[in-house]
C-alpha cells in the first residue's frame, strides 16, 4: 500500500529524483520520459487514437485515458465533447501511460535513443505484436508510432511534435499542437 502511494508520488512529481521519505531503505526511483512533451504532443494524439469511449476512454480499462473527446475526470464536472482536456486529466494520462510497466519504462527513459523501447507493452500492443483487444492500431514507424516511441526514448521534441501532428492531421478533428521548445 505504502509502496503504491510512493510510486504515485514519484510519478506525479516528475521522477528520477525523490524517493519515499518514510521508507528510505526500500527506496525505488522510477523514471518516465519528458512530461511536457507528453502533455503537449503525445497526449492529444493518444486521447484521439486510443482514448475513445469504447476503448481506453473507459473507467474499467487498463491504461485509462481522459480527454476532451472521451472520458472525463471523475473529480471534475466536464462532459464528453465539451471543454478541452484539463491539467488534471493530462496528469492522470501521464501517470497512466508511465505506470503500465514502471521498471521497463524507467530503463527506456534512462537509455535515450535505445532499442529497449521496442519491448514495452505500450509499443508492442499498439503494433499488434502482443495480445491487444483493439488489435493492431499502429504500424511500426508510422506517424502515430513515431510519436509515442519518439517520446518514450527521448528523441528531439521537434521530431516528436512533427510525428504527433502528422498523426493528428489524418483525423477528422482539427488540432494544432503548440510549437516545440527551441533547442
Amino acid at each position: 500500500m505504502k509502496k503504491l502511494a510512493c510510486l504515485g508520488l514519484i510519478l506525479g512529481a516528475g521522477f528520477v529524483s525523490g524517493g519515499c521519505i518514510d521508507e528510505p531503505e526500500r527506496r525505488i526511483d522510477f523514471a518516465c520520459a519528458d512530461r511536457e512533451v507528453f502533455v503537449n504532443f503525445v497526449s492529444p494524439m493518444m486521447e484521439r487514437r486510443c482514448g475513445t469511449l469504447d476503448c481506453h476512454g473507459h473507467d474499467q480499462r487498463p491504461m485509462r485515458l481522459f480527454g476532451e473527446l472521451g472520458l472525463r475526470h471523475p473529480q471534475e464536472l466536464n462532459q464528453t465533447g465539451g471543454d478541452s482536456t484539463t491539467a488534471r486529466e493530462l496528469d492522470a494520462n501521464y501517470r497512466s501511460v508511465c505506470s503500465i510497466e514502471p521498471e521497463k519504462t524507467t530503463n527506456v527513459a534512462l537509455d535515450p535513443g535505445g532499442q529497449s523501447v521496442n519491448k514495452l507493452y505500450l509499443v508492442r500492443k499498439a503494433r499488434g505484436q502482443e495480445r491487444h483487444k483493439g488489435g493492431k492500431v499502429f504500424d511500426p514507424f508510422d506517424d502515430a508510432d513515431r510519436c509515442v516511441v519518439g517520446w518514450l526514448r527521448s528523441d528531439n521534441p521537434r521530431a516528436i511534435r512533427e510525428a504527433c501532428q502528422a498523426a493528428l492531421n489524418k483525423l477528422p478533428d482539427t488540432v494544432e499542437l503548440p510549437e516545440a521548445p527551441a533547442p
Binding site: 484521439r48 487514437r49 486510443c50 469511449l53 472521451g70 464528453t80 483525423l171 477528422p172
Partner: peptide, 15 residues
C-alpha cells in the same frame, strides 16, 4: 461531423 473516431463499438448508443 463527429470529431472523434469509433474505435470498436458498432452501436452508436455505446457512446
Amino acid at each position: 461531423y463527429m470529431r472523434s473516431l469509433i474505435g470498436r463499438d458498432r452501436s452508436c448508443a455505446g457512446c
